Simulated assay, not measured.
Amino acid sequence: MRIALAIGDAAGIGPELAARIVADADANAGDLIVIGDRRLLAEGARIAGVAADLPVIGVDDLSRPLPSGSVLLDLGNCDPAGVARGGSSDAAGRASLQNFAAALLMGKAGIADAVAFTPFNKHSMRLARPSYVDEIGFVNAVTGATRSGREFNVLDEVWNARVTSHIPLSKVAETITTDRILQSLLLTDEVMTAAGIADPRIGVAALNPHAGDGGNFGHEDDEVIAPAIEAARAQGLKVTGPVPSDTVFVRAIKGGEFDAVMTMYHDQGQIAMKLIGFDRGVTLIAGYPFPIVTPAHGTAFDIAGQGIADTGATFNALALGRKLARLHPRPPATGEARADAARAIAAQVAPEHAGE
């Protein structure tokens, strides 16, 4: 079992988290392929006060079966001395994109069974790649996926799915449609079932206060969300709603009524999940042949370099990635797939491709 772990933004807590994970025997269960610059991992280890020594491999080594145990794929792409801690930068964004692309290409080839990353900073990534929108779009571009995945947040036994994600709040009402909500419900049921949760119970959050209050506060809940719920029920899903969003998480987490909450937009779910378990929550990008996981918190620029970053969510992310990969094993990478991945990764880190 191998997990490709991409080091995230160099100006945040990502290098420290990666170093702590490498040094933690429990967190490092199963072989890791840590991806990034060896100088950045060494800086993370210095900040954390741990030893994070790993055998170092180069891109060409991916063409052959790797030795057992964890290794560091040194891309030599980010000298920490050239990155100002605690702020966005083109250099950090470029390295994050290259690390993530390498991890995804290893997942696609079967060199890695799952992909993980310590937190990225989207502003940094957009400085390096202006076309960058979010992780899902990048996954599709790098892997050539024909089906777009979705993000889920996982906190203990409760999942949060969402219909829209990284769009302005002003566009949410016009973006949610009955079909989009139905497809999100079907994918949520599919992903959770594949994760070993049989017949997941999904509570659907309303868009408007008091679920629209019979039309007094908007008509989307009655005219857009409710029909999607009925259509999902007709296909055998266990769905409840629309439930006012100020109580749906109470019913899920305190009442144990739902296995998942589906929200209409990003912060409708993220605020609740992070408030309840900021240092435990995991983001899962599902719908691809391999799981993609990361801690649900961000780069924490405010505490970067202080040596106090908590690995709880990163540990949980790796554990979820391993669990999902074990539930759905794939055949090992062929020699041809390894060679193709090595060539593609080498192209990603070439200077002429830096801004693509």
Rank of each mutant, 00 (worst) to 15 (best):
S96Q: 03
H266V: 11
D134A: 08
G355D: 15
P80E: 06
P244D: 09
D246C: 09
G215K: 12
A286W: 02
T118F: 00
A319V: 15
N140W: 04
L72Q: 03
N160A: 14
R147L: 09
G212R: 01
V250P: 07
G212P: 04
V139F: 09
A91S: 07
D199W: 12
D53W: 11
I47C: 06
G255N: 06
V158T: 13
V261Y: 00
V115M: 03
E352Q: 15
N316S: 15
I308A: 14
V224L: 08
G44M: 02
P332C: 11
G256Q: 06
L104F: 11
N99H: 08
G281P: 01
F117I: 05
R162Y: 00
A29T: 15
R2D: 10
L318G: 05
A102T: 04
R147A: 14
Q268P: 04
F120D: 00
F301C: 05
M264E: 06
M125Q: 05
A91Q: 03
L324K: 08
I303M: 09
A231W: 05
R129C: 14
R38G: 02
A11H: 01
A198C: 15
G212F: 01
D61A: 14
A260S: 13
K238V: 10
G12P: 01
S96D: 01
K323R: 15
P291W: 13
D340W: 00
I167G: 01
A346I: 06
H328W: 05
A27Q: 11
V250M: 13
V293H: 05
